[in-house]
Design a protein around this nucleic acid. Structure first.
Lengths: 181, 181
DNA sequence: GCTTGTCAATACGGTGCCGTATGGTGGGGA
DNA sequence: TCCCCACCATACGGCACCGTATTGACAAGC
């Protein structure tokens, strides 16, 4: 079980880093090859095409940045604390990779599907918590959609207008007070 | 004063349409030339470089989609109605061009500056309205940031997860109830 | 020691875009 | 009438990327 394909792993991790730095356009074969100190010959052995690398990168993002965090906070039993923990992650470290995913969402079907899934999972997660707090099914869903909207908006502001945003944590607290019953 | 440069105008409008359809990458000289039924020879007579077209497109967007709407609703004296009118625009017609601007914000300085200005103007506009509703200066600012965040988030959802969003207007109403005192 | 399989380098053709250089054309003023 | 100039076409070189084809290095196992 030693990493039989550790080099493929290197490509995938480099691709995820490139995505964060330069967007999906930076997930390109030749630039990554230069960065890794190899040539395309390596790439096209491990992968069939660039789209395959993109798919792997997207899957990696979903594992590390969607499923992971959700699973992590799921252990908190108190729904209020659970929501606070989740919303707090947004202000702690601005989700730059997520912004990159949003950027590519409309132009790449693989990315688009992943972004949609992420939204569904996160909203469902929060809706469940709001339900545990006593809200009706429909109201919990709306509240979750609203909370998720603030998450996305805050991610945008922290990247494109940080001085305007000011203290992200303070705003997150302010938002939580208004959104969590 | 007849449009001495009506053809340049055509280029700019085509560029804005292309931005909406395909993002900033679609604001490209040769594709637009094909679409307009001319050649690059035309373009490089009216413009010096592609960046110049991008700058013109961004300026056009700011006029038509930022300053315009703000100026339009500014005539409403009741601050509550003013806020409702502004937030309502988001759900009526999902702001697809704005999403395209967000996409390019991190990679193009011109777009980035415009997006930042748009955020500042809109937040300032709403903060003023919240102030008129009796909120303190700091609280009004936070509330405006929160409201703008929901705007951005809803724009994202309406594009990337419309079925999840459901009725955008209903959510906008729900949001307004919670955010407007 | 020779084959076989894994991995990567080299070299090539193809595509789509930017920007330049230069040549045409048609209509309005002298 | 002729010329000029705004306006556009043609044609070119350059760049950055994708994907393929071919060859090479190196280790394991028989």
């Amino acid at each position: 079980m030693t990493p039989e394909n550790l080099d493929r792993e290197r490509w995938e991790q480099a691709a995820l880093d490139a995505l964060e730095r330069g967007g999906l356009a930076a997930v390109a074969v030749e630039p990554l090859a230069r960065e890794l100190g190899v040539t395309k010959g390596s790439f096209y052995w491990h992968f069939g095409t660039r789209q395959e690398l993109i798919a792997a990168t997207v899957a990696r993002w979903e594992r590390l940045h969607v499923d992971g965090p959700l699973k992590a906070v799921a252990t908190i039993e108190d729904p209020r604390e659970r929501l606070l923990a989740l919303l707090g992650k947004a202000s702690a470290k601005p989700p730059t990779i997520f912004m990159r995913m949003l950027e590519a969402s409309a132009d790449d079907a693989t990315v688009g599907a992943a972004v949609t899934r992420a939204a569904e999972q996160r909203v469902a997660f929060m809706a469940k918590a709001f339900g545990e707090l006593g809200l009706s099914r429909a109201r919990a869903r709306r509240q979750a959609l609203l909370a998720y909207s603030t998450y996305v908006g805050r991610a945008h502001l922290s990247r494109d207008a940080p001085e305007l945003l000011g203290d992200a944590e303070a705003l997150a607290k302010h938002a939580a007070e208004q959104l969590i019953p």
